[in-house]
Amino acid sequence: MQRWDRIEAFVEVVRLGTFAAAARELSVSNSHVSRLVSQLEQQLGTALLYRTTRQINLTDAGALYYRHCRHLFDGFREAEAAIDDLQDRPQGRLSLTSATTFGERFLAPLVNDFLLEHPQLEVRMHFTNRQVDIIDEGFDVAIRMGRLEDSSLVARRLCERREYVVGAPAYFEHISQPHALAELSRHRCLIGSRDQWRFAVDGVRREVRVSGQWRANSGPALLDAALKGLGLAQLPDYYVDEHLASGALISVLDAYRHDDTAVWAVFPRHRQRSPKLQRFLDHLVSYLPQRLSSAH
């Protein structure tokens, strides 16, 4: 009995989190996806999903079934990738994810340039400050900054990235510049997506928890607050180089700046030999450093 379309609908609903997202992915209506999943549940004789007005959760049977079925579609994608490899030219879908501001400002233009060279590609970009599970969510590659935590993924260094602790001259009119990490506790710190700032002490990585009255998960907002003298911020070079050169910002604690801040591409091991992905990464290695340096 043919049930591939029903299984695919179920896998996409779980992977993407909603019937609407699955319907967009499969280019069908919401009602069609819902009907396919219901038919699958009837065939299996058990409920796979708990449906509420706000969210969808897996039943125990659904979780078990998903774990097995998702590998089937991974296999299908690998079969398509093998054909791409045989033809030795980028084609099919290229899906990537990264942090929002970095993706919008630096990655999207480079992806668009790559698409002009390879118009047969289908591109999917997803920018979010959430840590994405690229295997479960079906991405080919994620662009990440700093220290990598997931050793199950293959990583390729794309370019260097330096982080600075900066403040405006107006801020330092009211408080002296810090010269030791312990002095951060008496400063107003502007907090971005994390409240632990990274440093190096005698070559050893160290994280210092900072506090302050200002927080936002936006690099441009963080930069604006620092420029207006609201406190200290830790920001990467492509945000602050221009302002350091002009004197609008002052870098402090340079003796503790750590080097583990590169920009990385991470991807599943089974994608390591994909010409499509490798050519795209070569493209980023060639042009991303130039784009970052031209940002200021």
Rank of each mutant, 00 (worst) to 15 (best):
D150K: 14
F19T: 05
V210C: 14
R206Q: 15
E78A: 04
M125I: 13
N30M: 07
R54T: 10
A295P: 06
A221W: 04
S152C: 03
P90V: 02
Y287A: 01
W264F: 05
E41T: 02
P90N: 08
H243W: 12
L222W: 10
W4Q: 14
R54S: 12
G17A: 04
S185E: 12
Q42N: 03
V123C: 11
N30I: 06
I7Q: 10
L232E: 13
R130Y: 04
I134D: 08
C69K: 08
D254P: 00
Q2H: 07
G167K: 08
R15Q: 11
F73K: 04
M1P: 08
Y256Q: 10
D150M: 03
S176W: 06
F280K: 10
F199S: 13
S151F: 00
E8V: 05
Q278F: 05
G203P: 04
A180M: 05
G212H: 12
I143E: 03
R279C: 05
H174G: 07
M1R: 00
S294K: 06
G138N: 02
R188W: 12
A200H: 09
V123G: 02
S29H: 03
G229Q: 12
C189E: 10
W264M: 02
R198T: 15
D88N: 11
P275A: 02
G75A: 05
W264P: 07
R209Q: 14
L222F: 06
H270D: 06
E78K: 12
I191V: 14
L96M: 14
I134T: 05
A221C: 11
E104N: 13
L16V: 04
L253Q: 07
Y65V: 08
A79E: 09
G203F: 11
L96N: 10
N112I: 09
E163S: 12
V166R: 07
S95L: 06
L277V: 05
S38M: 01
M145W: 09
D133Y: 07
F73Y: 13
R3T: 02
